[in-house]
Simulated scan of single mutants.
Amino acid sequence: MRLTYKEIELKPEKSFLVRRDTVPCIEQDWHFHKELELIYFLKSTGTRYVGNSIDRFQPGELYLIGSDLPHLFRNDKEYYEHNIDNQVADVIVVKFVSDFLGSDFISLTESQNLKLLFEKANRGLKFSSYVSRLVHDVMIELVESTGMLSVIGILGILDVLSSDKNCISLCPEINNTFFRKDEKERMAKIISYLTQNFDKKIELEKMASIAHMTPNSFCRYFKKQTQKSFSQYLNEIRIRNACKLLIEGKLQITTICYQSGFNTITNFNRQFRTFMNVTPSEYMKKFQV
């Protein structure tokens, strides 16, 4: 997997793109594109990587990804193995450029909230559950809407999103060099390797070789790009995976520890408590029926 730049998907006769994907799994590379992307998960679970942010995503969550912001939404392993009955990813995707209704429109006084929304999206936005529910029906209707009704629909959605006081920025701290085009390919190779191999032993020397650096140079580079140390970033990926397995409640904590890439249960417990402020057993109990 490598970083890819996706060309604009808009058709000449459309000012924005809307589609609903109902598929066994989300097939994505770490990628970026000129358009802003509104993503609404009706059914799907997995891990999201947006800029330097890592976390889980769940059904009912709504995101707005800014122009040229690298991102990847990766389903959990079982989606790709197709071993769960009726397990599908059901996602609504809306893509548009910031001036999709013309540069004059986005410059209007009445459009300033939208302009601010698009600027905030450069860090990636996750909207509150209340607002996600508020636009749920309109998002579904937008898939089938045509003509002026589709324009009215998307403007209504964006207006509601722009008023969400509880939305969160996914990348509260960004080093702008991370998003320079000449750095994206290098970071893509690093992050792609981590997302595919986090459950195995990962040597610092291996990561440095992928980046064509010495280990010391790699550590400095990684911290500069992500605002996190390499070990912190890797542990965060592993802890997010462990959270998913703990919520499912099908495996023993010791098994989850090793399946998430930790070598000892002591280290796993320590790292889990550092990230989640509770022990793995306490976290699991919160989701037991």
Rank of each mutant, 00 (worst) to 15 (best):
I152D: 13
I237V: 07
Y283P: 00
I202R: 10
H212G: 02
Q58Y: 14
M187N: 02
L245N: 11
V138P: 00
M284H: 09
N267D: 15
I256S: 03
C243T: 03
T264C: 06
L10M: 09
L114M: 05
L42A: 00
D99C: 12
N175C: 15
A208D: 05
V151P: 05
T264N: 08
N197Q: 01
N216C: 07
E144L: 11
L170S: 12
L125H: 11
V23D: 09
P172K: 09
Y130T: 13
E282L: 07
V23P: 05
G46P: 15
I39V: 11
E144T: 15
L125W: 11
N75G: 02
P12F: 01
F16K: 08
L101S: 10
P215K: 11
M187Y: 05
V50Q: 03
L62H: 03
M187T: 00
N263W: 01
V93M: 12
S229E: 14
F73P: 00
Y283K: 00
K14C: 00
N175K: 13
E37Y: 10
Y258W: 07
F275D: 01
I190W: 06
C219Y: 02
C171F: 05
W30G: 06
K244A: 07
E110W: 01
S44C: 07
E35Q: 13
L158F: 13
C167R: 14
Q28G: 08
L204D: 03
I210K: 07
L64K: 13
